[in-house]
Simulated scan of single mutants.
Amino acid sequence: MKITGYRTLTTHFPWQRAIGDANGSLPDAVTAVPVVIVETDTGLEGIGIGSHADLDRLFPAVEGEDPRAASALYDRMLAQVFKSGHAGATYGGIAALDSAIWDLKAKAADEPLWRLLGGRDRFVPGYASGLDIALDDEDLHRFYADYADLGFVAGKLKGGLDLAADQRRLGIVADALSAHTDHPGLMIDANESWQLKQAVRHLSALEEHFDLTWVEEPLRRWDAAGHARLSRAVRAAVATGENLTGVDQFRGLIEAGAVDIVQAGAVWGVTHFLRLAYAADLHDLPISIVGHNANPAVAHAAAAVPNHLTTEVQALTWAPGVVVDQEIGDGGILLGQAPGAGISLTEGKIIGDPPGAGWADPSGPHRRPSRAGLRLLLDGIER
């Protein structure tokens, strides 16, 4: 079996709510879902979700190759962009091709990907995440209560701009998630919006009222010394890494004792997650997937590593035209039995270009505000 070509599709996911974080928000959000289909000479096709970045530059590294050599092909793609570097957007293209190649490998073996990778239990624990900074209190409670009805006992609040608001909203999340536990897991995600001492002050105040499971991305992603100091200063675990591309970028954080929970963005693909999980396990660190909905294939890899902690679940449905053989319930993700990653396409249902800029909206969460980390007051007033 040889890889002969690829094609791309883009559908769009209507979130049916506002989404955002400390960097911005999108009302009535509709965002792009890039899909990559890798073709072979046998007619078998592999599907990857994530990014279309640099595909033309990356594809020669895998063209004509046997997709069953998935791990080696990942290294060939890294080598293909050796001079310019694989970080950032290029890594998204690598990940989409990588996920499609793993899908092909599992389909060729006529096995679900989780089993091919060595998984025994197809249930993957998860937590609820509303991307919720723009939700009012009523909608915030409704979102997490809906997840509690599905057995979820932990949730992550987007915050960091207003201490009083974070205290109030964490209480709302805790109340909504209390259907099955007296001690729901509570996390707060600042999305790199703080300086070190801002983080210590803010978290210390929150910890007077809440037993936080973790604080996520409190500081800039590369700040190993700052994260290490913060971890020593607060009770909550420090979780970070979703925006790091490549295991090499985690080296300084792990060596400095700067990360308590290693996070892997689902959008960076299957091989990245597997390698990072084993690197973390060498240091007795758990790993957690961020953004399961951005690439559901990575949940299969979570079932096959010894140190997976929990996976972020942001939505209960998929983009039009995308069918995923997974069920959300019992507080996590039940992986399906279909061969491959369990992703199929109904191309006639794919939504074309919607109104609005989606993730590219300059007021949205993918653009860092000019005063991020430079606010004197964290009271929701200063902008």
Results as ranks from 00 to 15, higher is better:
Gly93Phe: 13
Ser129Ala: 14
Pro218Thr: 09
Ala109Ile: 07
Gly321Pro: 05
Ala53Gln: 10
Pro112Lys: 09
Gly64His: 08
Val234Tyr: 02
Ala174Met: 08
Gln167Pro: 08
Ala61Thr: 08
Lys197Gln: 15
Ala301Thr: 05
Arg201Glu: 15
Gly246Tyr: 03
Gly226Glu: 02
Gly20His: 02
Arg375Thr: 10
Glu327Ser: 13
Leu196Ser: 07
Ile19Cys: 01
Asp66Trp: 04
Thr42Asp: 14
Ala154Ser: 15
Arg232Trp: 02
Thr310Tyr: 05
Leu212Pro: 00
Asp41Tyr: 10
Glu39Phe: 06
His209Trp: 01
Leu177Lys: 09
Ala338Lys: 13
Asp75Asn: 11
Ala22Val: 06
Leu377Lys: 14
Ala338His: 07
Leu274Asp: 03
Leu78Val: 09
Asn295Gln: 08
Asn307Ile: 11
Leu163Val: 15
Gly20Ser: 08
Gln198Val: 09
Val81Asp: 02
Pro355Asp: 15
Leu104Cys: 14
Glu208Gly: 11
Asp162Pro: 12
Ser288Phe: 05
Pro362Lys: 12
Leu157Lys: 07
Trp194Cys: 02
Thr317Tyr: 07
Arg201Leu: 14
Ala304Gly: 07
Gly159Ser: 05
Val200Cys: 08
Gly332Lys: 12
Leu285His: 07
Leu104Asp: 13
Ser193Ile: 09
Gly291Thr: 00
Pro286Glu: 09
Tyr127Gly: 03
Trp114Cys: 10
Phe123Ile: 08
Gly291Tyr: 05
Trp214Asn: 03
Ala32Met: 00
Gly358His: 01
Ala53Ile: 03
Gly265Ala: 04
Gly348Trp: 00
Val234Lys: 04
Pro365Ile: 02
Ile351Glu: 01
Gln249His: 05
Ala315Gln: 15
Asp248Trp: 04
Pro354His: 00
Thr40Tyr: 11
Pro67Tyr: 07
Val62Tyr: 01
His227Glu: 04
Pro67Arg: 09
Ile261Asn: 07
Ala319Asp: 04
Ala95Tyr: 08
Tyr147Ile: 11
Gly88Ala: 11
Val234Thr: 11
Ile289Tyr: 01
Pro354Cys: 00
Glu45Asn: 12
Glu216Leu: 06
Ile287Asn: 03
Leu309Tyr: 10
Arg169Ile: 11
Asn243Met: 10
Asp121Ala: 03
Lys197Asp: 15
Ile47Ser: 02
Asp146Gly: 08
Glu217Tyr: 04
Leu335Asp: 06
Leu377Asp: 13
Ala70Glu: 12
Trp102Thr: 06
Ala237Thr: 02
Ala165Ser: 15
Asp281Tyr: 10
Glu255Asn: 05
Gly171Arg: 04
Gly321Ile: 00
